[in-house]
């Protein structure tokens, strides 16, 4: 029982990572693995601004988020969009995003070094006792952020014009384009939103534990699993999938050891890709091709 509760408590960061991945995958139409580096950068930007330049967090965090959003939009405008114009398929875009990830990862390690860094100096973390459940302050904050992100994202997707257009693109980009939605602009929105969420997620995880150049890949793994398992149409599905992953990993730690976390996450990913591919993506290829 304790594992299930811990799993749910720890899944706030999965919610954030899953939302970021879902927005990116569906909004810009392929698996952008460069997002892995954006998670890392979210943490490191705050580290630079807060720890090195001594700016207060409430200034450092928004700057870091905007930097990541701008980076995401730059990639979209300068790389992915010209490639699409050249008829590049999703596989090419995926390869380019892998190249981009390697570059960013190399740069981060070059600049910050391979060692672990902390945003908040170490020492025991404060924690609260609510209804007999121990929860750390940072977990509580992460949940608050995750819930805020879910609510504001839902509102954006349901209530604003841009959000409705983004949903249309996510469901069927060709149909959306035919009905007069400007695809390039929506993709820019999606990049900005996805990368902002990724920055927030990277920062929260950096607060909870520490920063390392390869942290982003791990976060991306979780995010991909959640985004695919949760389906991208509903924020609710993402939250559910994040719970599922959080619980599965914590039960896994208890039953077979903490080193198997990646294996568990990717086993879940494979199962969903294999058995619910059309179900969650709604891509009925036979009808589309013939």
């Amino acid at each position: 029982m304790q594992f299930i509760i811990n799993g749910i408590l720890a899944s706030a960061s999965f919610v954030l990572a899953g939302l970021a991945c879902a927005i990116i995958i569906r909004g810009i139409g392929f698996f952008n693995l460069a997002l892995g580096a954006i998670f890392t950068l979210g943490g490191y930007f705050v580290f630079s601004l807060h720890v090195k330049l001594l700016l207060p967090l409430w200034i450092a965090v928004p700057i870091a988020i905007s930097l990541c959003a701008v980076l995401g939009m730059l990639f979209e405008a300068m790389l992915f969009s010209p490639l699409r114009a050249k008829q590049a398929g999703p596989s090419v875009l995926l390869l380019v995003s892998i190249g981009l990830y390697i570059i960013l990862y190399g740069l981060i390690e070059l600049i910050y070094g391979p060692q672990v860094e902390m945003i908040v100096a170490g020492g025991p973390r404060s924690s609260l006792q609510i209804l007999g459940i121990r929860i750390t302050t940072i977990q509580l904050v992460t949940w608050a952020v995750a819930i805020a992100a879910c609510v504001s994202l839902s509102c954006f997707l349901k209530l604003t014009k841009g959000g409705v257009a983004l949903r249309a693109v996510a469901t069927d980009s060709e149909l959306a384009a035919m009905s007069g939605i400007e695809l390039p602009r929506i993709r820019m929105y999606a990049s900005a939103i996805g990368c902002s969420l990724a920055a927030i997620c990277g920062f929260m995880i950096g607060m909870d534990s520490d920063l390392s150049p390869n942290m982003g890949m791990r976060i991306l793994f979780g995010g991909l699993v959640v985004a695919i398992a949760g389906g991208v149409d509903s924020v609710f599905g993402i939250v559910l999938a994040a719970f599922l992953l959080g619980i599965a990993q914590h039960v896994g730690v208890w039953k077979i050891g903490s080193q198997w976390q990646d294996t568990i996450a990717f086993a879940i990913l494979l199962i969903f890709l294999l058995f619910r591919p059309q179900g969650f993506f709604g891509k009925n290829f036979k009808k589309a091709i013939l």
Binding site: F30, F221, Q259, D262, L274
Partner: peptide, 20 residues
Amino acid sequence: RIKDDYFAIATFAFQIITFS
């Protein structure tokens, strides 16, 4: 069953699991 980038991600998952 799955195509293009979705298949690539499945092979990616296989790679991670094998490494792990």
